[in-house]
């Protein structure tokens, strides 16, 4: 990160921005193709509307899902490696406190956002670490479904094949719920979306 009071600071490192948008694309494909796959054998008493799915039919959806999984996994691994090695995780996510996150949420509900450019508030820290964990669970439960024989230890860890399907579904549901809030805030709070492309904090702040 570049310091300096006058020049615009880089608040989002290039590596984080690139992996963020690659991840956004991969998640988009995984979720929408996953909905189509779900529809082939719904776990619960509903189906996703066809117009909001990707792939056209089951074979197409599976082709998308098993292609984009590589993008999701490799991009995710690169992001995790960068975050750990560069100190990005330590600087941005630590210290982490559920109590602090709760306080921030209360503040947000009163119409204020405890938000400063280049610094995650306590709620953001908990949500961002949480979404990373949710994606990891989605990938692991997905592997457990994909390879219940070759990776049977992992499948057993998920509670067996059928339980792994349920875990996979709720990992997806968690990710989608996060996205509703995340995208809602990104487009409604002034001045926070552009820096995710440019890396620079808005000048007026």
């Amino acid at each position: 990160m570049v310091g300096g009071a006058d020049k615009p600071r880089t608040i989002h490192p290039l590596f984080v921005r690139v992996t963020h948008w690659v991840n956004a694309f991969a998640i988009f494909v995984m979720v929408l193709s996953g909905w189509r796959i779900y529809n082939a054998s719904p776990l619960f008493g509903f189906e996703f509307p066809k117009d909001f799915t990707l792939g056209g039919w089951l074979a197409g959806a599976l082709a998308w899902h098993f292609a984009a999984m590589w993008l999701l996994a490799l991009n995710g691994l690169a992001y995790l490696a960068y975050g750990l090695v560069s100190g990005h995780f330590r600087r941005s996510f630590m210290p982490i406190s559920l109590r602090g996150a709760f306080d921030d949420l209360l503040v947000a509900m009163r119409g204020h956002l405890n938000h400063a450019p280049g610094r995650y508030n306590a709620a953001q820290r908990v949500f961002y670490v949480g979404i990373i964990l949710a994606v990891i669970v989605a990938i692991l439960s997905g592997l457990a479904i994909w390879k219940p024989v070759q990776l049977q230890g992992l499948t057993a860890l998920m509670g067996g094949y059928e339980a792994a399907r349920v875990v996979h579904f709720f990992a997806m549901a968690t990710i989608v719920a996060f996205l509703v809030v995340h995208i809602g805030l990104a487009v409604s709070v002034k001045g926070i979306l552009a820096p995710m492309f440019t890396g620079r904090a808005e000048a007026q702040r």
């Binding site: 988009f28 929408l32 056209g56």
Partner: peptide, 20 residues
């Protein structure tokens, strides 16, 4: 019936809703 229509080279087309 749909499957019969959706020959292999078409198998993605109909899913590309949402401006994907």
């Amino acid at each position: 019936p749909q499957i019969a229509r959706l020959e292999r080279r078409l198998f993605l087309k109909q899913g590309l809703s949402l401006g994907a």
